[in-house]
Amino acid sequence: MTAPLAVRYPFRGDWVARNSPADRIPSHGTTLFGSALAIDFVGVDAAGRSAPVTFSTLVRPEPPDAFAGFGRALLAPADAEVVAASDGAPDHPAHRGLPSLGYALTQRRRLAAGWPGLAGNHVLLRCEGGAVVALCHLQAGSVLVRPGARVRAGEPVGRCGNSGNSTEPHVHVQAVDRLDLARARPVPLLFDGGTPRSGRVVHVA
């Protein structure tokens, strides 16, 4: 078993943990691309909502900027070297309720595009010891770093978006043992000393 990688939460404010390895492994229902120990964080408002729920939520896609997390700053979770960065994928509408069924039909196309098609806009950070941390689904045009740069923990690297395989704005975080995602093995993450369970609100001042 690979030793856990201690990192900071890659954001400030209130976020809800989803698809956590604290609840099940593989956390996302697959071991593909080293994602077995990945975790998702959804930005929420003071009432704990990612976005207000209305009748239209149930029947049609919603604009990503209607969600509390969309556009929030994402931060480097550790001192690291930037080894990949991409921000050319569009932010697509969010899908909750019935629209999520139609969205599910598009996942095969994203999977066919490989890891970049699933990750959307992303930043890959190589930490001390060699583990690579991925921050995925970033907002189009928001990435602030480029390969070869070094970042310090807490430094802004981009913004939360809804690109790639994402039904609503959130940040997907995972760590792997190598840059080759097709052959990578997952590395456990400890956020400020632990891994939150799904449904837990994380507040970072």
Rank of each mutant, 00 (worst) to 15 (best):
L125F: 03
Q107W: 12
W115A: 15
C127L: 00
C136T: 14
A149C: 14
G141K: 08
V145M: 03
L125Q: 04
C136V: 13
L125T: 06
Y103L: 14
G120P: 00
P116N: 08
A149Q: 15
R146S: 13
S142I: 05
P116W: 03
V143W: 04
L111H: 14
V143R: 09
V132I: 07
A140Y: 11
G120V: 00
R126S: 09
Q139N: 06
G141L: 08
A134Y: 13
Q107K: 14
A149G: 12
L101Y: 13
V132Y: 00
V143C: 10
V132K: 02
A149T: 15
L144D: 08
L111M: 15
R108K: 14
V143I: 07
L111S: 15
G102A: 09
H137Y: 04
A104R: 10
L135Y: 05
T106Q: 13
N121Y: 03
S142R: 04
V133L: 02
A113H: 09
L124M: 12
A113C: 08
Q139C: 07
L118E: 12
A131I: 01
V133W: 01
T106K: 14
G129M: 01
E128L: 09
G117M: 01
P116F: 03
G130A: 07
R110P: 10
G130V: 05
L105F: 12
R110C: 08
S142Y: 01
L124G: 13
G120M: 00
L125C: 04
R126L: 06
C136P: 08
L124F: 04
G130N: 08
L138W: 03
L118N: 09
E128R: 14
P147F: 00
Y103W: 13
V145F: 02
H122Q: 08
H137C: 06
V133F: 01
L138N: 09
S142G: 05
G130Y: 03
V145D: 06
L118K: 02
G130K: 05
L118Y: 00
